[in-house]
Structure formats: structure tokens, C-alpha cells
Nucleic acid binder design. Structure first.
Length: 505
RNA sequence: GAGUCGGUAGCUCAGUCGGUAGAGCAACGCCCUUUUAAGGCGUGGGUCCUGGGUUCGAGUCCCAGCCGACUCACCA
């Protein structure tokens, strides 16, 4: 017995047999189809009895003597194929008998309905175009139930092609994400923005508070870092009198992973000269409306158990007012870390945080700005279900944003929230080189005190500012998270084709 | 980084008290010219994640490690 033959051996034998019959599946270079599968189903009434040419992958097979049935998928829809020995001739029939689930084929035949009413192709010619040497997790299904599939998430991420073949929901979500990116591009192109590309390898990675990946540049024998944001180079282009620029690109942050964090993720940043914070809000509102229309065909999107309508303007609230509303801490209480901690103790903020499902340890708070953002995160964020802009962020955590006139502790910065999740970060950019230098110096001092995520000094950027930058509004949006929210994904990896994974062994 | 849970056939999973490794789908052979979870008869298939240990005997118990999931911490 030859029971030790592997599936691959058996299928390679079938390839040899096909070649003996005069057809080399791997020799085929092209096959011109007349229709997409979806269109032969949609236009069936007009096509019934007409010849069609289709191509795709076999998802199921039912052989029954001198006839057989199969389902062909072109990635979008599936249609049934009907093979009959009498109609295919000896060679054609034998070729069809050598087919397996997973093979790519082209077929020629006419549309008809079977006894049970299924729209099908009565195949007159079959052209095998590649053989699946591996067993694919495909097979039988009926009315939503299926007797195959790939649910192990590790396998789905490591072998994403199998996920794309077998799991229509995963496939749709990933495709939606790609269409979303395309819609974002179209949005900015239509507004007259210029799409640019800036360096990924940098001597010092700046523009955000994060740890960078380090790699080595052999030619210059020096270590370089992978970018953690797009910000500083894009603003240097604003300084170069490119008044509207955007970039969609990968940034890298050497930090922990979670369902909302991937070490490499796709950032959108856009900058517009002579525009301010309020203009950026308008841009974000327009962007969400346009993108949801382009991807989902509606400005109304169901997210979890909520229906959001991006046709409506977003709520606008002020950070300190919201914090006061939820904690009782007044702007005056929050004028210094010391008084803030005293007042927070008096109000029992730690217990309130626990009740709200968060955690605050007053003894651990190091600076006022960080504490305020912590309060925002624990008490305010969960309440921001409808699209909302939170305006006015503390200066310590906003080293690239203009100060609020008359209030040197606050900046002209906002973040946008949807279903309690932060989705964008924007500000009126600092264009005063003296102010910017002072902010960097503050950051460098933080770094010296052990904060390895503080911004480094960037003399090149400062030089550009010194040459004159117009007033500018800027905004950053994490594309993966945007896709997560809009497609209802519970893990960021569901929106990334090939998420970072440790090697299997 | 910490805690909890998981890893058994190509896929989805079961495996009792420690006693010969199981099912469905997929695969292979035969029959079957409108089936659709096609059907009938038959067959093969395992590094039970890895390495140690306990035991007459380990998929099962113990220890260590690897990979993953979830929760938490940092971050967007």
C-alpha cells in the first residue's frame, strides 16, 4: 500500500497526469474572463443560456460518477459549476476529475439553473491554472453553518492568506480598511493637499512621546532610529512653502502590544498653513463623513450597539470643564500638582476612579499635565460616546502646540473621541522658534530626569522654524484605530494584514 | 513586564480516575450523469508544543522553557 504518500505527493501526481493529457496547469499565463462571479449572479436572468468565462478558486466539490458539482469563488462571490462527462469529452472530463478543492480554474460554459434552482454554470471547457498542493480549510457549508474554517487566531495571523480565503468577515474587514485608506487619500487630494514621503530612518526620532526602534546603518557605521511620528518633517515642508501636506505611513514605537497597540502602525498626519485648531476640527468632521460615505455608503455607522451619524457636527467640550464636571476638581484646584493632589484626596478621587473602573494612585503622579490627562482618561473618556472634540490640553504634555493666549499653562490642542476612544490629536502648531526651543529644552530636562520618552532637541527643525513658518494647523489620526472603530474590530491586528508576531520557534 | 487560560490528525474539537489515540470535515479507493453538509461501501493519517522528572506505565501528574489568547500596567 502507498498509504505514506502525502497529500502534496498525490496532488503533484495529478499535475503530472494533467501534463500527460496535454495540459500543464502551471503553463497557463492568462485567462480572460467575461464576467465577475457577482455579475453572473446579479444578471442571471439576462445571461441564462448564454456563454460565460469565469475564473477563480474551487471551494467545494461533489463528484458523482460521470457528473460533478463544484463551487467557484473569485474572492467576492461563489457560483456553482456543473461538469458532465458527455459535455467535456474524454480529456476535459479527466482533467475535471483531477481537480481538488483549492485549485484555480478557468471555465467556459453557459448559465443555467439546476433542478433545485441554484444559479450555475454548465461547464463546456475547464482550464486548470494552479494546483493546491496543501489542504485548504475549505469544504461543506449550508445556511451559515460550515464544516471547515480557520478560527485559531495565531494561524489566521501567521498565514493570513488562509484567513483571506476562508473567512469572509475577516476578508471584508481588511478590504474595508484598505478602501478606507484609499478614501482618506482621495479626501486630501481633493482638498489640494500634496501627499509626501518623509524619512523613516532618523538620527533622532521625534514628534511624539515614545521609545524608538534602533537599527544600524552600515555605510555610515552609525545607529539610526525608526521614526515614531511624521510631525517634524511635515512641518519642515510647511516651512518650505508647501502649504498643504499629508503623509500616510508606517511609524514604529518600541512599546508593549495590546488589542489597541501594534509596534508598527499607520499614521495619517496632515498640516495646513494659515489654518488653526477650529479648521482642523472641520477637516476631521469632513474626513469622517466622506470616508464613511465612501466605504460604507452612509454617514451613519453602527458601532457596537450605537448608531453614529457623521453628518452631524461633533460635540465640542473643554477638558478642564469636563474634568470638573466629573470629579469636582476646579481649574483653580488644578493650578499646581501640589494643590491638585490635596484637593483630589479631599474629594476621594482615588475611590471615585476605582468606582469608574479605572485606577489612580495620587502618590505616583509626577507632573500636573500628566495628572490632568489621567483624570481625563479615567473619568471623561468613557462618557465620550458620540463624536466629541476635547479642547485645551496642559502644556507639559503638548510640547509642539501653541499656548492659549493669556493662559501659559494650556495649549491650543484638541483630541477627538468616538465611542470612548481617542481617534485624533490636533493643534495650532508652534511657529515661534524661541517658544519651540524653550519647549524642547524642557523636554530635554525631562529626559535627563529619566523620562526616556521625552522629546529630543531637534536643531534642524528649529532652523526651519527660524526661517519662518506660517501659522499652521496640524492633525494626526491612527489609521489602524480608525479602521478598528469603523469596522467594529476588537483587536488592532484584525485591521493589519500581517501583524507583528514572534517567530513560532 | 505580571497574572489567568490554552497548544491533541490538514481544519474544528473530544479524550473520564494515569492503562493500546478518538469524532466530524478534509484526504485516498470503489459505485453513482441535476447534487448541494450529496449518498453508499471501504482505507490511510499523530513529534498529543519542546525538554526534563515521578511512575511498571504519562496526552493526562510535577518542573522548566517556547508560542498564543485574555486581563492588567505603559503607549496612539
Amino acid at each position: 500500500m502507498s498509504e505514506e504518500r502525502s497529500v502534496a505527493d498525490i496532488r503533484l501526481e495529478k499535475v503530472r497526469r494533467m501534463r500527460e493529457l496535454g495540459h500543464d496547469p502551471y503553463g497557463v499565463e492568462r485567462f480572460e474572463r467575461s464576467h465577475a462571479v457577482k455579475s453572473v449572479l446579479d444578471e442571471f436572468e439576462a445571461l441564462e443560456g448564454q456563454g460565460v468565462r469565469l475564473s477563480g478558486r474551487l471551494h467545494s466539490m461533489r463528484q458523482m460518477g460521470k457528473a460533478s458539482f463544484a463551487h467557484l469563488s473569485d474572492g467576492e462571490e461563489k457560483v456553482q459549476l456543473y461538469f458532465r462527462k458527455d459535455d467535456l469529452g474524454e480529456v476535459g472530463w479527466e482533467l475535471s476529475e483531477l481537480l481538488d478543492i483549492g485549485d484555480h480554474v478557468g471555465v467556459e460554459g453557459e448559465m443555467f439553473r439546476t433542478k433545485t434552482g441554484e444559479k450555475s454554470v454548465h461547464v463546456r471547457r475547464v482550464v486548470p491554472m494552479s494546483k493546491a498542493l496543501q489542504v485548504l480549510p475549505l469544504g461543506k457549508e449550508k445556511e451559515g453553518h460550515h464544516w471547515y474554517g480557520l478560527s485559531d487566531v495565531e494561524t489566521r495571523y501567521r498565514h493570513r492568506h488562509l484567513d483571506l480565503i476562508c473567512n469572509p468577515e475577516a476578508r471584508k474587514r481588511l478590504l474595508d480598511r484598505m478602501r478606507l485608506t484609499a478614501a482618506v487619500r482621495r479626501f486630501f487630494d481633493d482638498l489640494g493637499y500634496l501627499e509626501v514621503e518623509t524619512p523613516m530612518l532618523q538620527i533622532e526620532a521625534g514628534g511624539a512621546a515614545a521609545r524608538a526602534f534602533v537599527t544600524h546603518y552600515n555605510a555610515y557605521d552609525m545607529d539610526v532610529k525608526l521614526r515614531i511620528s511624521l510631525e517634524l518633517y511635515l512641518k519642515r515642508l510647511i516651512c518650505g512653502d508647501l502649504p498643504k501636506v499629508y503623509e500616510i505611513g508606517r511609524v514604529f514605537r518600541n512599546e508593549g502590544v495590546s488589542n489597541r497597540h501594534s509596534p508598527e502602525f499607520t499614521m495619517l498626519e496632515f498640516y495646513e498653513a494659515y489654518a488653526n485648531l477650529e479648521d482642523m476640527m472641520t477637516r476631521v468632521e469632513d474626513l469622517f463623513r466622506t470616508v464613511s460615505m465612501a466605504v460604507f455608503g452612509s454617514t451613519e455607522v453602527a458601532i457596537g450597539d450605537r448608531r453614529l451619524d457623521f453628518a452631524r457636527p461633533w460635540h465640542r467640550v473643554h477638558l478642564l470643564e469636563e474634568v470638573e464636571r466629573h470629579t469636582g476638581l476646579t481649574p483653580h484646584d488644578l493650578s499646581s500638582l501640589e494643590t491638585a493632589v490635596v484637593e483630589a484626596r479631599r474629594l476621594g478621587v482615588e475611590d471615585l476612579a476605582t468606582k469608574a473602573g479605572g485606577h489612580i494612585d495620587l502618590a505616583k503622579e509626577k507632573n500636573l499635565g500628566g495628572f490632568i490627562e489621567k483624570l481625563l482618561e479615567v473619568f471623561v473618556e468613557p462618557t465620550l460616546q458620540d463624536p466629541t472634540f476635547v479642547i485645551g490640553y496642559p502644556i507639559e504634555t503638548s510640547p509642539l502646540a501653541k499656548k492659549v493666549p493669556g493662559d501659559p499653562s494650556m495649549t491650543r490642542r484638541f483630541e477627538g473621541y468616538v465611542v470612548g476612544r481617542e481617534i485624533c490629536n490636533a493643534f495650532s502648531e508652534i511657529n515661534d522658534p524661541v517658544d519651540q526651543r524653550a519647549r524642547f529644552e524642557q523636554q530635554v530636562a525631562e529626559r535627563a530626569r529619566g523620562d526616556d520618552e521625552a522629546h529630543p532637541m531637534d536643531e534642524e527643525f528649529l532652523f526651519a522654524l527660524e526661517c519662518g513658518m506660517p501659522p499652521t494647523g496640524g492633525c494626526g489620526i491612527g489609521i489602524d484605530r480608525l479602521a478598528m472603530i469603523l469596522t467594529g474590530a476588537d483587536h488592532i491586528r484584525e485591521t493589519i494584514l500581517f501583524p507583528t508576531m514572534k517567530p513560532e520557534h
